[in-house]
């Protein structure tokens, strides 16, 4: 498992990575379309995640 993790960290084949991404984009279009239709609350502005101001 450690070797697998190390290999994932250091090595990326750009062409294959982009190919995977584009294939996923094609397959997940309906999910994204649905996500865009989910009504955001009126409070969806300003800080959305991350540390609050102290």
């Amino acid at each position: 498992m450690l070797n697998v993790a190390t290999n994932k960290t250091n090595d990326v084949n750009v062409d294959k990575a982009i190919e995977r991404m584009q294939a996923h984009a094609s397959k997940s279009k309906s999910s994204f379309a649905k996500a865009l239709k989910v009504k955001a609350p009126s409070s969806a502005y300003g800080r959305l995640a991350g540390p609050a101001k102290a």
Partner: peptide, 9 residues
Amino acid sequence: IPVNRQIGW
């Protein structure tokens, strides 16, 4: 941005 929605970074 209003104070209550300001970021902490």
